[in-house]
Design a protein around this nucleic acid. Structure first.
Length: 933
DNA sequence: GACATCACG
DNA sequence: GACGTACGTGATGTCC
């Protein structure tokens, strides 16, 4: 087939592919392919736009030549001119990235030429082609509304805004820029562009720029004669910023002389091959479009099977688990086909095997990959060889493993490729392992977090649970491989032959779960929760955990010694008072001493038949006897020593000298996080002795610790969700909320408020959040139950919206089986229909969950935005304690960091939710956590 | 491994 | 009318 030479009478259409993609992405909900969950919303919109475009191409104005022009990913020559060019562009959404290559495939399926050039923007290609078309005496229509392209208009080149179906000719350009196309770059050079981060001349916009250019003729004359300008400020700007303005012009000036490896003649309009086009549309599972296109082409529409065609023909239910089918990858040659497969599909499930569970310490042992259900491999890397005389392996590496560095060099481009989705179960773990190898994994999907968004409150989200519940498959247990107790071995000692099925299966399971969960997120309307509250938190938490917090060993050690001495003294006293030695740490023995031997009153046995000796009981007994008081003191010291001053020392990382906790993103049903190994969310603060432990948490020299915490966030959220005007007003007026509650309830003016009355009101306020009961309040305040019930009744009278909210929440839970936060997080309440005492639990949990959960969502949003909010500062976010964020920052940047972090936190609900009550953040600073808090 | 206890929000 | 109860976590030591 020979190409028609392009010339007079010819008409070239250039379609701005990126504009099509982004318009399609934002116009449509996040659709996913039914069979496997691949995000295809943008591809669907893109194809619809192409279809409408092709359909409308009739009549005398129809093009003879056409191409869709795309931006090539990566840096362009403009970044070499100005490294901040387009630097404030947010990265493409993660569910859009895998769709980029598919839009190219779609274009080719329509049999339309598809062009992109590395190092250049689509605009430059279009500029070069438009100039060539013009010079050849033909016409050119650029289908885009991007104003950067308007400089090309004229001499047979026009633009077409496909959305408004409006042609933009020379007059249209003058209307937009106030100058003709030939002077557009001059105006743009002056006005700059905040979207592309083109600086221009500060203080000069398009209007002023056009005025100046029209007066002086062109930019060069204007800059040469800048001293003639009357307005002093404008004059000075043009003189001072000449370099910046000239650089801006080079940025906006499109390149009309690119060397292209094709000619316009190659872009001749061609009819699509029905088989190719319909095949592609069917593979994407676009039912309506496939049919419409088939009608248009006069073809039979291909059937879209529930089990789709092409590379994604395998779905989980069709493939039984087969542990013998997994592959072992032992060389670069064996790894390469897997990488090719991954690139072809655009996703891969990944799992790492390591020598332990502490990501900050362990070594990488192997990596497993899965590209479709049943097709998985294991890449052993640092397994130890079995030694003849040693059952647990030698120090030598086992044979038949590729070098770790080779594997990582090959996998790094894949793991970092923005167009390839990396799928994992608890990806934060694997991402940290890879981060320690210099690999920044992105983008990521996490089946554990998907399950949390889908099934929060129903069950835990570990791989074993998910596999059994949703795949009806019990994974190979790790126990038999590693053993237990003293004889337990690490994974590098596991023979490779045993490791293959175990490791590869985990990746296989993960991929199957992903295929299953991905479409369900949308169906269950929790895509937004997953996309905005779960997935983006992974890298934020990973960084916080890797940064850790500095803890001073000497301070802890001194405290431990002091506690030990004091405990020994108390123990001696206690034994003397008891009349015999016993284990003070044994509640069982203590109960027998107190109630059997000493005959104290009030001995109550719990369900196991042992006496209860909790702090509340000992406090009551303390009025009658010295022993329980001493035991209380001893217990406090014992707790502080064993859980904090001793244990924390063991958690100081040998390499970093810091303590690195792990956050459990799915740890709490409400959306809160939990912290473990060590738990840094329960460091003592309420007691004076305990609070001193926080003195051991310190910044690096020259730095300070900053603590920012939300003030009364749960009560503020309660005021909003229950619509309590009196509470809202009190917060708006900046009142002491507990005093105000007390004043309302007990008819005491704020001036006459006593600490005791305020304390009671505070307990009631918290009780309300917890789903108050007369019994619970009575116990908390140590008052008769009837009196507590009286308080509650009075509270409901004074704030009637509270009861309505509680009743409505419980009703909602009964009807739907879940409750929701303001941000759409679902917390399932399977026990709500239970009978007996469990019903009470479920009710209170249902009342509490939206409040606690909304507060949790708010701080998550703040944390997700925080890296950007403090990017310009040398500050690090170290810890989260439910309503508090702790930062480490050089002294010089303290004020700026407080301002930036506070803004991010106080506005965290916006724009998704507008709260009727402002969020207020208090800030503290200090040389340790005790001072900062 | 279950239970009791206690540290935090 | 009785049930047994504040909401959400993790770590530790005892005891079986």
């Amino acid at each position: 087939m020979s190409n028609t030479e392009f010339g007079k009478g010819c008409h070239l259409h250039l379609i701005d592919g990126s504009a099509f993609i982004f318009r399609a992405y934002h116009a449509l909900p996040p659709l996913t392919r039914k069979s496997d969950g691949l995000p295809i919303g943008a591809v669907a919109g893109f194809c619809n736009m192409l279809q409408r475009y092709v359909e409308g191409n009739t009549g005398p104005d129809a093009p003879t030549h056409v191409a869709v022009i795309f931006d090539h990913s990566g840096k362009t020559f403009r970044n070499d001119l100005y490294d901040l060019y387009k630097a404030n562009r947010p990265p493409a959404p993660e569910d859009l990235r895998p769709q980029f290559p598919l839009t190219r495939t779609a274009t080719r399926a329509f049999n339309i030429a598809c062009k992109e050039v590395e190092g250049f923007e689509a605009d430059d290609i279009m500029a070069t082609l438009a100039c060539q078309a013009r010079d050849a005496g033909g016409r050119c229509t650029i289908i885009s509304s991007d104003k950067d392209l308007m400089q090309l208009v004229g001499g047979g080149v026009e633009m077409l805004d496909a959305m408004k179906n409006k042609r933009i000719d020379r007059d249209g350009v003058i209307e937009k820029f106030g100058v003709g196309p030939e002077r557009v770059v001059d105006v743009q050079a002056l006005a700059g562009d905040s979207v592309d981060n083109v600086p221009g001349a500060p203080g000069i916009g398009i209007k002023t720029a056009a005025l100046l250019i029209n007066e002086y003729g062109d930019l060069e004359s204007l800059l040469d004669r800048a001293s003639e300008i009357k307005q002093p400020k404008r004059r000075q700007t043009l003189i001072d910023k000449r370099k910046q303005i000239e650089m801006s012009k080079t940025l906006v000036q499109l390149d009309c002389n690119m060397a292209l490896d094709f000619t316009i003649a190659d872009l001749e309009v061609r009819d699509p091959d029905p088989e190719v086009l319909l095949g592609f549309l069917a593979e994407m599972e676009f039912r309506t479009l496939t049919k419409r296109m088939a009608d248009q082409l006069g073809q039979e529409a291909p059937a879209i099977a529930e089990a789709p065609a092409g590379v994604i023909e395998v779905i989980a239910e069709d493939v039984p688990f087969d542990r013998d089918a997994y592959t072992c990858v032992r060389s670069a040659d064996e790894l390469q086909p897997w990488i090719d497969q991954i690139r072809q599909r655009g996703w891969v499930a990944v799992d790492t095997e390591t020598t332990g569970l502490d990501e900050m310490v362990v070594d990488l042992v192997g990596i497993s990959l899965c590209v479709e259900p049943g097709t998985a491999c294991y890449i052993p890397l640092t397994h130890r060889a079995a030694a003849a005389d040693d059952l647990f392996g030698s120090d030598d590496l086992a044979k038949g493993q590729m070098p770790l560095t080779t594997a990582l060099e090959m996998l790094k481009p894949v793991l970092e490729d923005p167009a390839i989705m990396k799928i994992g179960q608890n990806m934060k773990y694997d991402a940290k392992i890879f981060a320690r190898q210099g690999i920044t994994v992105a983008p990521m999907d996490d089946t554990m977090l998907m399950s949390y968004a889908l099934h929060g409150g129903l069950h835990n989200h570990g791989m074993d649970t998910l596999s059994e519940r949703y795949l009806d498959h019990t994974p190979i247990p790790i126990k038999p491989l590693l053993g237990t107790g003293k004889s337990a071995i690490t994974f590098d000692k596991v023979p490779v032959s045993d490791a293959i099925p175990y490791a590869a299966e985990d990746a296989d399971i993960t991929l199957r779960l992903w295929q299953l969960f991905k479409p369900r997120l949308h169906q269950a309307k929790v895509s937004t929760v997953y996309e905005t509250l779960e997935r983006p938190l992974i890298p934020v938490l990973a960084k916080m955990e890797m940064d850790g917090i500095k803890v001073d060993r000497d301070t802890l050690s001194r405290m431990s010694n002091a506690f030990a001495q004091k405990m020994a003294e108390l123990e001696a006293d206690i034994h003397a008072l008891a009349g015999r030695p016993f284990n003070v740490g044994s509640p069982k023995q203590l109960g027998e001493i107190l109630f059997d031997e000493m005959g104290l009153e009030g001995g109550k046995k719990g369900k196991t038949g042992a006496y209860a000796t909790g702090a509340d009981i000992l406090e009551d007994l303390a009025t009658e006897h010295d022993l329980p008081a001493r035991v209380l003191d001893w217990r406090q010291l014992s707790k502080l020593k064993s859980t904090y001053t001793d244990a924390l020392q063991d958690h100081i990382n040998a390499d970093t000298g810091r303590v690195h906790t792990s956050y459990l993103q799915t740890g709490a049903n409400t959306g809160r996080m939990a912290s473990k190994d060590p738990n840094l969310q329960n460091i003592p603060v309420r007691s004076e002795e305990g609070r001193r432990i926080r003195e051991a948490f310190i910044p690096e020299p020259g730095n300070v610790l900053l603590s920012l915490d939300y003030s009364q966030i749960e009560l503020r959220i309660l005021a909003h969700v229950a619509g309590i005007d009196a509470l809202k007003q009190a917060f708006a007026d900046g009142l002491d909320i507990h005093a105000m509650t007390a004043s309302e309830m007990f008819d005491v003016s704020l001036d006459e408020m006593t600490p005791e009355i305020r304390r009671q009101a505070k307990a009631i306020n918290f009780g309300v959040i917890y789903g108050i009961s007369g019994f619970g309040l009575a116990r908390n305040l140590r008052i008769p139950r009837a009196e507590a019930q009286g308080f509650i009744n009075r509270y409901f009278e004074r704030f009637p919206g509270i009861r309505t909210y509680m009743d409505a929440t419980v009703e909602f839970a009964k009807e739907h089986g879940y409750v929701q936060t303001l941000f759409g997080r679902k917390i399932h309440t399977p026990e709500i229909a239970a009978k007996g005492p469990r019903a009470g639990f479920a009710k209170r949990a249902a009342i509490n969950a939206p409040i606690q959960g909304t507060a949790a969502d708010v701080i998550r949003r703040a944390m997700i935005r925080m890296p950007d909010a403090i990017a310009h500062l040398p500050a690090r976010m170290l810890l989260q304690v439910h309503d508090e964020l702790l930062f480490e920052v050089p002294e010089a940047s303290v004020e700026e960091t407080i301002a930036a972090a506070r803004t991010a936190m106080e506005n965290a609900a916006d724009p998704a939710v507008h709260l009727d009550v402002k969020l207020i953040v208090d800030a503290g600073r200090g040389a340790n956590w005790a001072e900062a808090h």
